[in-house]
Amino acid sequence: MRLKRYADILIFALLLIAYPLIITDNYGLNVGIFALENIITVTGLNLLMGYAGQISLGHAGFVGLGAYISAILTATYHWNCWLAMITAFVLVGIVAFFVALPTLKLRGHYLAMATLGLGMILYIFFSQLVDITGGPSGFVGIPYMRFGSLTFSSYSTIYVVTAMITFVIIWLSKNLASFKAGRIFRAIHQDEEAVVALGVNTYHYKVLVFVVSAVFASIAGSLYAHTVIFISPASFGFKRSIQLVTMVMVGGMGNIWGGVTGAIFLTYLPEFLRIFEDYDIIVYGSLLILVIIFMPGGIAGAVEDIYGKFKNTGGREDR
């Protein structure tokens, strides 16, 4: 039984280990690292969207905030990178908490608009605080991650660090999702009024999950800053927020592995679409529409359906 319970996470760990053994060139590792960084953000966003049913169109702002805090502390103030990452983590958590207090009282389109506005405001600060952030020209001179005398400058070493952090994040999220909080999140997603009627303060849970998702985004941002060792506001705008939401939707909301699949799929897809040159934007847009229309549960939902048909029992009993 125990083994069964951990089977999926074990397979995930195996995949993480297998990837750099199969794909050893720098290009493949590089795309892999970006995919992992997206997985981290998307998992957080998936908790917010899929489990708590709340949308955020401004999550790139939190990715950016994490990246900039890490960059500034390590490059300008020469902090240890891990200390900087944790500080970023805490600061983003605090910011997200105070932002979440009024924002998560809103619902539906109003929430979408509010989070979008927040993302925009963060973006404007990244580009306007020129003395601190380097402005639109970007921030140069970020060091690589180090541990003792080890410097993680090669893609293979960065991959190892990122993969370990990703694993921890996924493991935490999986537990969070299967404990009481997770069940309440899912209940909120399905019928918030019923949950309120049971005497549960849904608002507290929503704020909590919002903070968690922002903190995940911050970690991904810090990792990104130390991978590329250069950041600019262009990476943390509205477009990025939309990409993140798309990853959740395409992969499958409310299913951690769905989000993971979406992040992987949409990180690799544009690389394959390079053969389409300018037409990739059309493929991307159409894909988004087609997935929502024909696969409302995303890739994960579609696979479940197929599996259910094979088993003839629906296969959805514990949903």
Partner: peptide, 15 residues
């Protein structure tokens, strides 16, 4: 609402 938001975002990218 979430799906509707995303689908219109997809429309905008496509157009």
């Amino acid at each position: 609402i979430l799906s509707l938001i995303i689908v219109t975002i997809g429309d905008s990218i496509l157009i």
